[in-house]
Design a protein around this nucleic acid. Structure first.
Ligand SMILES: [Zn+2]
Ligand SMILES: [Zn+2]
Ligand SMILES: [Zn+2]
Ligand SMILES: [Zn+2]
Lengths: 147, 147
DNA sequence: CTTTACTCTAGTCTAGACTCTAGGGTGTAT
DNA sequence: ATACACCCTAGAGTCTAGACTAGAGTAAAG
């Protein structure tokens, strides 16, 4: 907050931002192409030049990915931040994602329960003949798993 | 089990097996290309000719897919059935899948818990300024979600 | 005989998120 | 001067599980 260093930011080349954010150089360029990162300034020789804010933006993207958002969804979230959207818009995106995650969890729990039972029913020794796992796949008994 | 109908099987064209198994014709041809289905007999004019066993094989594949197996994994399971593998081999595939499913469930539960908390922390009204969801993405507080 | 339904091949397209390649230019240290 | 790391572009390739298309031949029904 001192008076005179308004835009004196350290200038970073692509390798440095990538490293700082823990992504590859290719990923940075890829995100730029996808519109997740703005087109950066260029040096006289054409090198991309970044500052700290790009690292923060990459971290935003990484955290959102960690919460299960796709790059398209992340672009929506970044737009809401950049252009000033409403909390309602943000919440509708995260709410939808939450429901999607819950549905996925239910699917996987169903798979786990069927597969866990089959797995424990199988002795694991001898030839595949009579294997309860294979039999369940063959004739579909005890099958709640295929809609 | 009567004495004389050893291989008198009804002959089905691709549309019929596909319909009976609840998949598309494209899918049947695709599975053949992937090696999940053997190359069928052909009619004089080149039509694929199947019998009931193909429907059963397609059902096997569908059930395995419903349990989360990929087509490559399903091919392994089918091979064990076709060529006579051991129960241990089957169980090692299903055991690995079970662990994979469990890991996925844990990931998703982590996402759900973080996202659920953020979602309920956000009032949902007004501008995005101060939105706890966006803030968490920006500065990474309360963040157990990104490895 | 004609219409309609079915089948054939080969190839392209989708989503998602990169990753890699080829072929070149730049920057800095020794 | 030259080694070496770094950067550039454009485009192709990867993985999964098919969907879809075009152009052509075949079968069944009226
Ligand atoms: Zn078994
Ligand atoms: Zn099932
Ligand atoms: Zn909010
Ligand atoms: Zn996180």
């Amino acid at each position: 907050m001192s008076a005179m260093n308004a835009q004196i930011q350290p200038i970073l080349k692509i390798g440095a931002v990538a490293k700082a954010a823990g992504v590859s150089i290719d990923t940075v360029r890829f995100y730029e192409g996808r519109g997740l990162l703005p087109s950066p300034q260029r040096s006289a020789s054409g090198y991309r030049l970044y500052d700290q804010s790009t690292i923060e933006r990459l971290n935003f993207i990484g955290r959102a990915k960690g919460l299960g958002f796709t790059l398209n969804e992340i672009m929506l979230l970044l737009d809401l931040q950049d252009k000033g959207g409403s909390k309602a818009e943000v919440k509708s995106i995260t709410g939808a994602k939450l429901e999607q995650i819950e549905r996925k969890i239910e699917d996987l729990q169903r798979m786990r329960s069927v597969l866990g039972k089959l797995n424990s029913d199988c002795s694991g020794s001898g030839s595949v003949t009579g294997c309860p796992i294979i039999e369940a796949l063959v004739d579909g008994d005890s099958d709640d798993c295929c809609k």
